[in-house]
C-alpha cells in the first residue's frame, strides 16, 4: 500500500466522527471560549459588561484572600472525599469482584440503585435522615447517647458524607472493571509462595489495580472539587465551593466577567489534576499490556 492510499483510507475512517466533532465544537468548545472572552472583560454595576481587555478579574481573584481560602477549601474537600471514598469504595469493589451469582447481583443493584435517583432528591433524603427531627437524632436520644436533638446538617463532615455517597458508585464501577482484568490465580500463587492474605493483597492485587484507583480517585476528586449541589443543600455559606461562588457571582450578583473567571479557574485546576494523573499513570501502565 502506498503512503497516499493509506492516508486516504485513514481519513475515510474519520468521517463518522464528524457529527460528534461538530457538536463538541458548537456546544462545548465555543461556550468555553465565550466564557474565556467574558472573563477578560470589565463588569459595570447592574450587570452590564464593558468590552475591554483586562486581567482584573483574575488579579482580583488571586489577590483576594477570601477566594484563595475558598479555593483551598475546595481542594481540601476534594481531598477529604477522595481519602474517604478510595479505601471504602475499594472494599466494596473487591467484594463485588470476589462475589459470584446472586450475591454479586444484589451487590450490583445496591451500587447502581442510587444512580437511578435524582441527585437533588437524594440530597434532600440526607437532610431528612440527618435533621434534628430525623431518625438518627431520635435513635441517639432514645438510647440516651444524646441528651437533646442532634443536628448534623450544615457541617463539613456531612458534606463529605453526601459527596461520598454520590461519587462512590462511579469509583466502585471503574475500579471493578480494572479488578476484573486481574487473574484471581495471582492470589493463589502469592499464597502458595508463602504470602499472607494481606501480603498477597498489597504486593500483588493493589499494585495491579492501582490504575483503577487512580482513574476512579481522580473522578471522585474532580467531582468533589467542583461540587455544587451538595454544598448548597447540605452546607451553608462557609462551606461553599468555588463552583457555588461562580453561580452566585453570575446569577445573584450579576457579575458575569468575575463568575466566568471563576469557571475558567476551576477548569484550569481540573485540567492540571488530569495532567498530573496521566503522568502518574504512564509509569504504572506498562504491565497492563498483557
Amino acid at each position: 500500500m502506498t503512503a497516499r492510499t493509506r492516508k486516504k483510507s485513514s481519513l475515510k475512517y474519520l468521517l463518522p466522527a464528524i457529527p460528534l466533532c461538530v457538536f463538541t465544537l458548537c456546544f462545548f468548545l465555543f461556550p468555553i471560549l465565550l466564557m474565556v472572552k467574558y472573563s477578560l472583560h470589565h463588569s459595570l454595576p447592574y450587570g452590564e459588561i464593558e468590552r475591554i481587555f483586562t486581567l482584573e478579574n483574575y488579579i482580583n481573584f488571586f489577590t483576594d484572600i477570601y477566594y484563595i481560602k475558598v479555593l483551598i477549601k475546595s481542594f481540601l474537600l476534594g481531598l477529604a472525599v477522595s481519602v474517604v471514598t478510595i479505601p471504602l469504595g475499594y472494599i466494596v469493589a473487591y467484594a463485588l469482584w470476589q462475589s459470584r451469582g446472586l450475591k454479586r447481583k444484589i451487590l450490583y443493584i445496591c451500587i447502581l440503585f442510587p444512580l437511578f435517583t435524582n441527585l437533588v432528591v437524594r440530597l434532600y433524603g440526607w437532610r431528612i435522615i440527618l435533621s434534628p427531627a430525623g431518625p438518627i437524632s431520635n435513635f441517639l436520644q432514645k438510647t440516651g447517647l444524646a441528651e437533646e436533638s442532634v443536628n448534623m446538617l450544615f457541617t463539613w463532615p456531612t458534606i463529605v458524607l453526601g459527596l461520598f455517597s454520590e461519587c462512590a458508585p462511579y469509583y466502585i464501577l471503574i475500579l471493578f472493571s480494572v479488578l476484573t482484568l486481574i487473574n484471581p490465580r495471582y492470589i493463589d500463587a502469592a499464597f502458595d509462595l508463602g504470602a499472607t492474605r494481606l501480603e498477597a493483597f498489597f504486593k500483588v492485587i493493589w499494585p495491579l489495580s492501582l490504575s483503577g484507583v487512580i482513574s476512579g480517585g481522580l473522578i471522585v476528586y474532580i467531582w468533589a472539587f467542583g461540587a455544587f449541589a451538595t454544598p448548597t443543600i447540605l452546607g451553608n455559606a462557609k462551606h461553599w465551593t468555588l463552583a457555588v461562588h461562580a453561580e452566585r457571582q453570575i446569577l445573584s450578583l450579576r457579575d458575569w466577567p468575575y463568575g466566568s473567571a471563576f469557571g475558567i479557574i476551576i477548569l484550569l485546576f481540573t485540567l492540571l489534576i488530569v495532567f498530573l494523573q496521566t503522568k502518574l499513570l504512564k509509569r504504572k501502565q506498562i504491565y497492563r499490556e498483557i
Binding site: N183, R185, Y186, D188, A189, A190, F191, D192, L193, G194, A195, T196, V204, P207, L208, Y287, R288, I290
Partner: peptide
Amino acid sequence: LRANKRNTSMVFQEWALFPH
C-alpha cells in the same frame, strides 16, 4: 494448614506470573 504454611508449591496452568 493453608497454602502459605505448607512446603508445597504449585505451577499453575496459565503460570500466573505476577505481571507487574
